[in-house]
Design a protein around this nucleic acid. Structure first.
Length: 516
RNA sequence: GGGCCUGUAGCUCAGCUAGGUAGAGCAUCUGGCUUUUAACCAGGUGGCCAAGGGUUCGAAUCCCUUCAGGCCCGCCA
């Protein structure tokens, strides 16, 4: 059984509407771990619905969290914002409403592309609207109990005078510099490091925020969360999950949601992922280089508890090939191999939206890698494909959309992540190369035959071979010559296939120019 | 110290969430191809499933112990 079904079955033991939650703090570029969290939750949600259960997928953006420090990617001037909620800090690029939006908006757009459409909650709005007010009061009234739970379970010493509420200074707007002096419902008196002394009324929204370990359980109760996965760092003993479970049960009187712990995604190719060293890959980038169904496939095909290797180099091509293979098997075009697990379910969960009724038109991804370098725009790539008969004239709109999308992902990959060995550029002007006599002889001989050749991969390939044999020139030299005059480099994609995708007149002209 | 994950072919890993004949890709070998690219096609070799014990008619799969690796425990999933 697929892991998503196992988790869904677990939820279905209780016949009620389930709330499957996921969330992040958009305090920086949203990284690929969030992709795993949200897709894991989405998979369970889809399984649940398919089995006839009732459920809702929600996404909580904790944009009321204070900025912790000036991260390396931020200007130094942001020092003055440290401690303020990220929803109230200006956007670094000035195009978004706030710092939080800067990172959040693009991620939310990415979600659309991979077919995840959760109900979105914004913590800053929930706090400002007063949705949290009751939870805050309950927390304040149980300060000692909560403190004891956290100290006992997390084995952490909390300072004297600690309260489960971070007040926001009314003067300097910071949350991290305030000390509570006296709680007397409904007000808390406080002192801030900035020198301000004041009093907040917790019946009003937006005067402060519950600390993470309390915020989480309060949110479970408030939103009726019944399932929420989390990363292994939170799953550790004494972590937020442990204290959260106890707090939600004992303080808020609500059962802790079911969960699964997911492992991290490792990066291959650019070395191990060290977010501190800036080698982290953002969720957006990951999606920009990977077709959405393939990215989903990577996660659906592996249990959450498995750590994943994401290879942004050549491995990405293998991953796409693997996906395409599963697709062929799914539609009965190819035999299933023994290792394929939960193939049907995995394929279905990999689809961003509708599950195709018939197999989508498949074009080997590697060919697309070549084509996307001959012409960058889809319109032109399409022309090549039509001319060479690699796609039928009556290609469906849906198939075309799919191929176009893949071409765009290939382009992004080529521009940013592809290793040099697969890259080339068709030079608009003849590259400067000093050809040997032997090479010129080859080209002169080739040019006699080329005009009459059917412009088709195998025919071209044969002509090259015949010519090299006739002129007694090593085949390697022959290929090298072709790459040199067209690409200005010594190697390139499969020659016959490659040339057939180029315009015939262009090739003829180039050969002529080269032997002048 | 605590938590989680992993250990299956030379390499990367599936199969463990249904206990019932040990699988794939790459590498290697053989045959084919006048075919450069991580070539291609057909076939072959290759495993005491980390070790030990337990449950069972039957264990890679479930349970316990040990060993070895990885990661996480300062609000980065």
């Amino acid at each position: 059984m697929h892991w998503a079904d196992v988790l869904a079955d677990e939820l279905l033991k209780e016949d009620k509407k389930h709330v499957l939650a996921t969330g992040i703090t958009p305090s920086g570029p949203i990284h690929i771990g969030n992709m795993r969290e949200i897709l894991t939750t989405d998979a369970v949600y889809r399984s649940l619905i398919k089995k006839g259960g009732k459920g809702e997928l929600i996404y909580v953006a904790d944009d009321y969290d204070p900025l912790r420090k000036v991260y390396p990617y931020l200007p130094k001037s942001y020092e003055k914002y440290v401690g303020m909620p990220i929803s109230d800090i200006p956007c670094p690029c000035e195009k978004h409403k706030s710092y939080a939006d800067h990172y959040l908006i693009s991620f939310l757009n990415s979600l659309k592309e991979i077919g995840v459409e959760p109900h979105i909650y914004r913590a800053n709005k929930m706090y400002k609207n007063g949705d949290y007010n009751k939870a805050i009061q309950i927390a304040m009234d149980n300060t000692d109990k909560i403190k004891e739970i956290i100290q006992k379970i997390s084995k952490r010493e909390l300072p004297k005078g600690w309260i489960p509420f971070n007040i926001r200074c009314e003067k300097c707007k910071k949350m991290t510099t305030v000390k509570a002096v006296l709680y007397d419902y409904p007000t808390i008196e406080y002192k801030c490091d900035c020198g301000y002394e004041g009093k907040v009324d917790i019946r009003k929204g937006g005067v402060g925020k519950l600390p993470w370990r309390v915020d989480w359980p309060a949110r479970w109760k408030m939103l009726g969360v019944t399932f929420e996965p989390f990363g292994k760092d939170l799953g550790t003993a004494g972590g937020a999950r442990d204290t959260g479970k106890k707090i939600v049960e004992e303080i808020y009187g609500y059962p802790a949601p079911k969960y699964t712990v997911y492992e991290f995604i490792m990066l291959k190719g650019k070395g191990a992922m060290h977010s501190s060293k800036g080698t982290a890959l953002s969720a957006g980038e990951m999606l920009d280089m990977t077709p959405p169904e393939v990215l989903r496939f990577l996660l659906m095909n592996n249990q959450p508890g498995k750590h994943l290797m994401f290879d942004s180099g050549l491995g990405l091509l293998n991953l796409v090939d693997e996906y395409d293979k599963q697709e062929r098997v799914y539609f009965g075009k190819e035999e299933e191999t023994k290792g394929m697990k939960d193939l049907k379910k995995t394929y279905e969960l990999s689809q961003p939206y509708n599950i195709p009724k018939t197999i989508p038109y498949q074009l080997p991804y590697r060919h697309l890698v070549t084509l996307a370098q001959i012409d960058k725009k889809w319109d032109k790539v399409k022309k090549i494909l039509l001319r060479t008969g690699q796609i039928p004239k009556d290609l469906s709109k849906q198939d075309e959309k799919h191929l176009k999308q893949r071409t765009e992902h290939v382009r992004y990959w080529l521009d940013n992540f592809a290793p040099d060995m697969v890259k080339f550029e068709v030079k608009k002007k003849p590259p400067k190369v000093d050809l040997t006599k032997e090479q010129k002889k080859f080209l002169l001989s080739l040019i006699e035959k080329l005009p009459s050749v059917d412009w088709e991969a195998e025919r071209i390939h044969n002509i090259i071979y015949e010519t090299s044999e006739k002129e007694k020139i090593p085949i390697k030299t022959a290929f090298k010559t072709i790459y040199q005059i067209i690409l200005g480099q010594e190697k390139g994609p499969r020659a016959g296939f490659f040339l057939s995708n180029l315009n015939k007149d262009f090739v003829l002209k180039r050969v002529e120019e080269a032997v002048k």
